[in-house]
Computed example of a mutant assay.
Amino acid sequence: MATIINTDKAPAAIGPYVQGVDLGNLVFASGQIPLDPKTGEMASDITQQTHQSLANVKAILTAAGLSAKHIVKTTIFLTDLNDFNTVNGIYEQFFKAVDAPFPARSCVQVAALPRGANIEIEVIAAR
Results as ranks from 00 to 15, higher is better:
T62G: 02
S53E: 10
Q49W: 09
T39K: 07
L54S: 06
S30A: 14
G24W: 01
Q49R: 05
K38A: 15
V27R: 04
L54A: 01
V21K: 05
D22W: 13
G31E: 00
I33N: 09
G31H: 07
A29M: 07
L23K: 12
A43H: 13
P34V: 03
Q48A: 14
E41G: 15
L23C: 09
A59V: 09
L26N: 13
Q49G: 07
Q48C: 08
Q52K: 12
Q32N: 03
P34A: 06
V27F: 07
G31R: 10
Q49D: 11
T62M: 02
I46R: 06
K58P: 05
N25D: 15
P37G: 05
S44L: 14
V27S: 01
Q49S: 07
A43T: 07
T47L: 12
E41M: 15
A29E: 07
T62C: 05
T47G: 11
F28C: 08
G24K: 04
Q49V: 09
H51F: 11
Q32R: 11
K58V: 10
F28A: 00
L61Y: 02
D36A: 05
I60P: 08
T62N: 12
S30Y: 07
V57M: 02
N56W: 01
L54D: 03
L26C: 13
P34G: 06
L35E: 03
K58M: 06
V57N: 10
Q52P: 15
T50V: 10
L54M: 10
K58F: 05
A63M: 05
G65I: 09
A29V: 13
A29G: 04
D36L: 06
A64W: 09
N56A: 02
A29H: 00
A59I: 07
L61N: 05
T39M: 02
N56M: 05
L26T: 15
M42I: 10
G24F: 12
P34M: 12
K38D: 09
V27I: 08
I60F: 08
L54H: 00
A59G: 10
P37W: 05
L26S: 08
S53H: 06
D22Q: 06
D36W: 13
L35V: 06
I46M: 12
Q48L: 09
A64K: 10
D36H: 12
A63E: 12
Q48T: 14
L26K: 14
G40K: 02
T39D: 06
L23Y: 14
L61K: 03
T50L: 11
T62H: 05
V57Q: 09
N56C: 00
I60D: 02
V21D: 09
G65N: 11
K38V: 08
T47H: 15
P34D: 00
D45I: 11
V21N: 01
L35M: 15
L61G: 00
P34N: 08
L26Y: 15
I60M: 11
T39A: 03
T50G: 04
F28K: 03
A63G: 03
Q48R: 14
T62W: 00
